[in-house]
Computed example of a mutant assay.
Amino acid sequence: MAFHESWVDKQIREAQERGEFDNLPGAGKPLEGLDDPDPDWWVKKMMAREGLDASDALPPVMILRREHASFPESLLDVRTEDGVREVLRDYNLRVVDDRRRPAFGKESPVWAPTVEIEPMVERWRELRAERAAAAARAAVAAAAVSEPAPPRKRWWQRHGT
Rank of each mutant, 00 (worst) to 15 (best):
Y91A: 07
R65Y: 00
E126W: 00
N92G: 13
R100I: 04
P59I: 01
E130A: 12
E118H: 04
P59A: 10
H68D: 07
G105F: 04
V121C: 09
R101Y: 03
A57F: 15
P60N: 05
V145G: 14
A129R: 15
R85M: 12
A57T: 05
N92H: 03
E130Y: 05
Y91K: 05
R65H: 01
A103M: 05
E118P: 04
A136N: 04
P102M: 09
L88R: 02
P113R: 05
N92A: 14
D82G: 14
V78E: 07
R85G: 09
P72C: 06
G83Y: 08
N92P: 14
S74R: 07
S146A: 13
R89F: 10
R123W: 05
A103V: 05
L76C: 07
I63K: 13
E67H: 11
P102Q: 10
R65T: 03
L75N: 08
E73H: 09
W111K: 10
E116K: 13
R99P: 01
S146L: 11
P109W: 09
P150V: 06
L76N: 10
S70M: 13
E147H: 11
P102E: 12
A132T: 12
G83I: 07
D90H: 08
S55P: 00
R137S: 15
A141E: 13
A57I: 00
P72R: 06
